[in-house]
Amino acid sequence: MTSVVSPDQLLQQLHWRYATKKFDPTKKIPQEVWEALEKSLVLAPSSFGLQPWKFFVVTNPQTRQQLVAHSWNQTQVADASHLVVLAIKKEINDAYVDHYVQHMASVRETSVENLAGFGNVVKGFLTNPPYPLDLEEWAKRQVYVALGQLMTSAALLGIDTCPMEGFAPAKYDETLGLTELGYASVVLCPLGYRATDDKYAVMPKVRFPQEEMVQYL
């Protein structure tokens, strides 16, 4: 398959991307661009394809301003065009696996019975894993895969992002009502356009040399 994006274009956008410290609150992401970014989240890979998450897009300006105090006073959560709260599903049980298998059967036009073996493997992994497994930690690792896909997709579309762990998850869960919905916030990602006076935008990207970070065995 021919590359849709050239290697040079990919690297150019990854060099362009940085954790935006100051967003321009007057600039909004066009709807068609946002829809593509939203779909990039839905298309993110996860272990077994289970998608043990939900992505909450906070749109109310008053709520977002309220969240600044729960984000170490970082104003990106209020100033960015969009704010995504990436959260884990608190309970991944047999019923959830059955729901996923039923959906898979519908999408792939097969029977649930044909997928019973797969469903049993997943249930076995969750209840009797081959190694010590904390399901919440496992789900959090899946969320970071989705975060990476969102950030890369945004960079390719010329949209700025700022991944943020500097916030109080319990306060976010309380403010947004996530606990009652069965979810817990893990990481934030404001998206939008960098402010022209964000000094970090022009700072050289600091990374260890490639030969120090990549080793062939």
Results as ranks from 00 to 15, higher is better:
V101F: 02
D79Q: 15
E174M: 09
V57A: 12
P209F: 03
P169I: 12
Y172A: 07
V58K: 00
S106P: 03
A105S: 13
S111W: 06
S3L: 11
D94I: 02
P169E: 14
E113L: 08
F48Y: 15
L43T: 04
G158H: 02
L135P: 00
K27Y: 04
D173Y: 01
F167L: 06
D8K: 13
S153A: 15
V214W: 09
A69I: 10
L147Y: 00
N73H: 10
P190G: 04
E109G: 13
L11E: 13
V33D: 11
G117L: 04
L83F: 03
R108A: 09
E35Q: 15
L191T: 03
S47M: 03
D173W: 00
I88T: 08
P169R: 10
E136L: 06
R17Y: 01
L67W: 05
K22N: 14
G158P: 01
K27H: 08
V4N: 10
V121T: 11
P190D: 07
P130K: 05
V143P: 01
F208N: 14
P190V: 01
S111M: 02
P204Q: 13
G119S: 09
N93L: 03
F56K: 06
P204W: 10
L50A: 07
V186E: 00
E91G: 00
M151A: 15
Q51P: 06
L86T: 01
T196C: 13
F167K: 01
T127I: 09
G119N: 09
Q149N: 14
M213T: 15
L37S: 07
I29T: 03
A78V: 04
L176H: 03
M1V: 08
T196F: 13
G166D: 10
S185D: 04
T127N: 12
A116W: 10
V121F: 11
L157K: 15
A116H: 14
A87E: 02
W34R: 06
D98V: 06
L11K: 10
Q65I: 10
K89T: 08
T75A: 14
L133M: 14
G192S: 09
S106D: 12
P132Q: 11
W16S: 06
E211T: 12
Q74P: 04
V5D: 03
P25F: 02
N73Q: 13
A105Y: 04
L135D: 01
F23V: 07
G177E: 13
